[in-house]
Design a protein around this nucleic acid. Structure first.
Length: 379
DNA sequence: TATCCGTGGTA
DNA sequence: TTACCAAGGAT
């Protein structure tokens, strides 16, 4: 172990801490859907879903996903569009694509069995240090640390570590410490106990230190400075992008134009109502700019009839402000794998990012009003 | 190493 | 309203 990590943990009563933590977890841990059995596949799916995502958000997605794709084989042979649809609304969509690729590799290279070998498992797509430790400790009982945001917060307080947890080097420090203090008798309960403690007791704000099973071991609590930890530097705030988008119907009003986003980058491979970045701030040129862009990209003529709504959507690193219009496509659309006229009833089958779900919702709400303008929108 | 990659809950 | 955040990984 490195000297920098060692100086934090020397003289730490490891076994006493392990027992307190594990006993507490076995007594107070939540009954979560992915804790019902130790199927490595289900544990893996849950860990991927839980990346940067709250437990309450994940639960319904987990049930639905496991019902649709109950095994490695089922997922390996699944259609990617169905996967994205099952992931719709969860965010970070590359997670499910990486999981898909990784599961295919497990099927082909490891006979459909999640490898117990740390190096082998960690080399799969979308599997980083955290997921490696979480899956292999929980499913197979291997003593590999699983350091997430919870664990860094808990350990920063227990060992009074003031390093910036936003730095990659700091995470390595916590991984070394966790490797040193992890229980070899029950690595699963130890890892889950640290995370559960962070979620239920050692919370970011107003931690319940008086109820904490390991407050005897906590240097920050001893100093009354638990609220000062962990130290985390702030990231820069994102920029705002102005977009124009439109719900574009066919002449008979029965179909709507959908476009598949590029296969990399933001919201990759999800479908959208064609949207264009608004570079000209002049409102009088907005409609022409949009119509021209769609002709340039797809050789289709569209005309916008009226504004539909404004949609604002805040991502982790940027903000969209979308001016949404209602209009029509003139003539026939040359359909491709990424551009389709879709019947209004079947739009539910396409994975849409949340801002575009908002757009569709607005269209359905105002559909009657649009119809009174003299257009037939369906039926 | 810093940035990119979603979303919804919360102080 | 703003800012922060919640079981990270890829580049």
């Amino acid at each position: 172990m490195k000297e920098t990590a060692l100086k934090h943990v020397e003289h730490f009563p490891i076994h006493s801490f392990q027992k307190k933590l594990i006993d507490w977890f076995l007594r107070e841990g939540r009954d979560l859907p992915w804790r019902r059995d130790k199927d490595p596949y289900k544990i893996w799916v849950s860990e991927v879903m839980l990346q940067q995502t709250r437990v309450d958000t994940v639960i319904p997605y987990f049930h639905n996903f496991i019902e649709q794709f109950p095994s490695i084989d089922a997922l390996a042979s699944a259609d990617e569009q169905k996967l994205l649809k099952a992931w719709e609304g969860l965010g970070y969509y590359s997670r499910v694509k990486n999981l898909h690729a990784a599961v295919k590799e497990v099927k082909e290279r490891y006979g459909g069995v999640v490898p117990k070998d740390k190096e082998a498992f960690s080399q799969l797509k979308g599997v980083g240090p955290y997921t490696t430790g979480a899956v292999l400790s929980i499913a197979y009982g291997l003593p590999i640390p699983a350091v997430d945001g919870n664990v860094m917060r808990v350990l920063s307080r227990i060992f009074y570590i003031q390093e910036d947890i936003a730095k990659g080097r700091t995470k390595k420090l916590f991984e070394e410490i966790a490797q040193y203090i992890i229980s070899h008798e029950d690595p699963s309960s130890f890892n889950q106990g640290l995370m559960e403690l962070g979620a239920l007791v050692c919370k970011p704000s107003n931690p319940s230190c008086l109820l904490c099973p390991v407050n005897d071991f906590c240097e920050a609590f001893k100093r009354g400075e638990q609220h000062l930890l962990p130290v985390k530097s702030k990231g820069k705030k994102g920029k705002t992008i102005q977009l124009t988008a439109a719900v574009l119907l066919s002449d008979d009003g029965k179909k709507v134009l959908l476009r598949k986003r590029p296969s990399s980058g933001l919201l990759a491979d999800l479908w959208e109502f064609p949207s264009e970045e608004q570079k000209d701030r002049n409102f009088t040129n907005l409609l022409a700019e949009y119509e021209k862009a769609l002709y340039g990209k797809h050789e289709i003529n569209v005309h916008l009839k009226q504004p539909l709504c404004h949609v604002e959507h805040i991502f982790s690193h940027l903000k969209w402000e979308i001016k949404v219009f209602f209009g029509f496509v003139d003539g026939k659309v040359e359909e491709t794998s990424r551009l389709k006229m879709v019947s209004i009833d079947s739009i539910n089958h396409y994975p849409l990012p949340v801002p575009h779900q908002k757009i569709w919702e607005q269209f359905l709400i105002h559909r009657d009003v649009l119809e009174t303008e003299g257009f037939q929108t369906g039926e």
